[in-house]
Design a protein around this nucleic acid. Structure first.
Lengths: 217, 217
DNA sequence: ACGTGTGAATTAGTTCACAGCT
DNA sequence: AGCTGTGAACTAATTCACACGT
């Protein structure tokens, strides 16, 4: 029985993609005052199978008690640590268009222990202003500001033809994580992790499903 | 040899998730004036293997010519139709917060043959105004406006506790597709398709990778 | 009896490697 | 020779089903 140790292996990608939902549901259970939950009940709330949930949890450690279930508090801690959320992460938004502005104001980051500390743009009309609580800096000052504020993750919301340049600026300044909202592929050194959110791609997949989901197989 | 027929089967989900990138790269090739491309060259530009690309394309039809390659124009047509983009889709944004506002102004939709026709909110201070080219309506008028404007897809950018209600309003009005930007699971009738974009979840997966990617396996 | 943790079986996705067409 | 399309092999993910601890 391992319990509560740090992760010893990385999680399979499909498991990782479900982990944020697990953590979220566990917060709900904790807020409701539930102390113990079975894989069956938690899986029901997540609309997945109990077997899948147990398999996913087993990648992290031996966490439950046979015959009883899982302790909500323990599971919440483990998933929080598994997602790296046991510290606050300092975010930068690069690109002060409407999407970048919206993200600078986005209230959802707090729950994930994330904080937007700075926004960068090249437009002199924006530099020096505040967007909500977030100061806007000249992109040319990225390296300096990044080290001052301890920036760790950059969110890219620049026009497509600026995406690679913005990624380069961020990685050159030592940031190791990018969340890319542009629909271009950015290349980065191997120790830098990128995840992409491509709104257009999601909508195109949706229109495929709307038109063809009735087909066989 | 089938060529150019409509899709006869739905695409495997993993293949579908890559299709928007294929189409995008094909547009680039077409714009460059390239008439024929090999799986090897197209795969290189997409950073995937040529075997995977050929396998994916084979789900759509027999599209290439042995010894030569694929005709760019044909492939572009097939992927466009495969994604359902051979018509313009009418979008509604529900929720006039900063994210909804940003999406109403988002210029990227045009390339995908999508157009935001209306934004809905419950705030009387916003109703009746314009956001860019997009008129803001009272959410109570959704059914009426939806049939007037022929709305087909709703983008949900409401607060979490309003997400299910917004989804209900959209599906009751006959819309068959939802793009959910909230981090709550919305349930819909089986003929309605939902895709979710969960910014928080993506960031959490990123922080996991940043912290644990160095581990074994 | 309850419910986890996990081998075994199954299903899905990817890569290999080559027959066959140009 | 060049390159597609696809069986066969392989790898990953999911589900089944049950031994075992509480």
């Amino acid at each position: 029985m391992l319990t509560k140790g740090a992760l010893r292996r990385r999680l399979p990608p499909e498991t990782l993609s479900r982990l944020p939902a697990y953590r979220k549901q566990l917060s709900v259970l904790a807020a409701e005052g539930t102390e113990v939950v079975s894989s069956k009940e938690l899986a029901r709330r997540l609309s997945i199978s109990d077997a899948q949930l147990r398999r996913d949890l087993s990648y992290m450690a031996l966490l439950g008690r046979r015959g009883l279930g899982y302790e909500v508090e323990t599971l919440l801690e483990i998933t929080t640590r598994g997602l790296g959320l046991d510290k606050t992460w300092a975010l930068a938004v690069i690109g002060g268009g409407s999407l970048g502005t919206a993200l600078a104001r986005y209230p959802g980051f707090a729950k994930s222990n994330m904080e937007v500390k700075a926004l960068f743009d090249v437009d002199p009309g924006k530099i020096g202003k505040m967007i909500g609580q977030v100061p806007v800096y000249d992109l040319a000052r990225f390296p300096e500001v990044a080290s001052q504020l301890g920036l760790e993750i950059a969110i890219l919301t620049v026009p497509e033809d600026q995406a690679q340049r913005a990624a380069d600026v961020a990685t050159m300044a030592g940031l190791k994580g990018l969340l890319n909202f542009t629909s271009v592929f950015v290349s980065v050194p191997p120790d830098v992790k990128v995840r992409s959110v491509d709104i257009t791609s999601e909508l195109q997949q949706l229109t495929h499903l709307m038109r063809f989901e009735a087909l066989p197989l």
